[in-house]
């Protein structure tokens, strides 16, 4: 029996590349193990007993009413940072995302310049972690709530902008062409075609980011800006693990609640 197609020799390409990936992953992991300083022992002198204390407090956090009130106040402050930071992120992400999608440019050259410039700015914003932004902003403008809000808003704006630009680019083209043929200007095509089609996904992603924002806002407390992270740090300085876990449980509950809310929203927005 003769085949019209040449019989490929050797293993299929997909299997070859899987092998390469496996080798690279294992090799990189083995190399990185060399980076650990094994000479001083893995555990601290009293580290093993600290495991027991941490686990014990995890099951039995300190639930005295006073502490719960402190935890509620800290949770509220964390939520305030998260939500206000998300506002800043929207103020950065929407305009830059629209420009970075290159969809409102008049010419091809204009589109290329706009995409390149806006993408570079967005990439820079999100390359630096929010806590590094917080350290830099506190050094620059002092210990003010605005430092926390901006520290959260800048990298989140970078992420939102990139995702928004991709969503705006990926809408189906046929309805846009229909609008163009009926004489709509590029602005109107954007406003009445592109935006309404991309909006559900944009809203969905923003709600997902709110969940991440709560976690990030809790961490910002570490630089001294208040909230759950700050309380955890204070409790850890006293080695009071039961208090640490009170605040951590508050964080877990808050994140799970926001997660439930945002996943309900996203489920309803899914196509």
């Amino acid at each position: 029996m003769r085949s019209e197609y040449p019989i490929s020799r050797g293993r299929p390409r997909a299997i070859e590349s899987r092998r390469t990936i496996t080798l690279i992953l294992l090799g990189a992991f083995a190399l990185s193990l060399l980076g650990i300083d094994w000479s001083e022992g893995v555990f601290r002198p009293r580290g093993v007993s600290a495991i027991g204390e941490t686990l014990g407090a995890f099951i039995r956090p300190d639930l005295s009413p006073d502490l719960l009130r402190t935890a509620a106040a800290a949770a509220w402050q964390t939520a305030v940072y998260a939500v206000a930071g998300l506002t800043v992120a929207l103020l950065i992400g929407i305009p830059l995302g629209v420009v970075a999608s290159g969809t409102i440019a008049r010419s091809r050259l204009g589109a290329v310049t706009q995409i390149g410039a806006a993408r570079a700015v967005l990439a820079f914003f999100r390359a630096i972690h929010e806590l590094v932004w917080a350290l830099l902003l506190v050094a620059a403008i002092g210990l003010s709530p605005m430092a926390a809000v901006l520290a959260l808003g800048i990298p989140y704006g970078g992420i939102l902008g990139r995702i928004y630009s991709e969503l705006l680019q990926d809408v189906p083209q046929a309805p846009l062409d229909a609008l163009r043929r009926s004489g709509a200007s590029e602005w109107r095509v954007f406003l009445f075609g592109r935006l309404p089609m991309a909006l559900p996904d944009m809203v969905s992603y923003t709600f997902y980011r709110l969940e991440c924002g709560i976690r990030s806002a809790a961490v910002l407390g570490w630089v001294g800006l208040g909230g759950l992270g700050f309380q955890v740090q204070i409790a850890l300085e006293d080695l009071a693990y039961s208090r640490v876990w009170t605040f951590l449980w508050a964080l877990v509950v808050m994140v799970v609640l926001v997660d439930l809310w945002s996943s309900q929203v996203r489920r309803r927005l899914a196509p």
């Binding site: 300083d37 555990f43 580290g47 093993v48 600290a50 080695l239």
Partner: peptide, 8 residues
Amino acid sequence: FIFSPGIL
């Protein structure tokens, strides 16, 4: 508090 300082 558990592990010796370093990358681990």
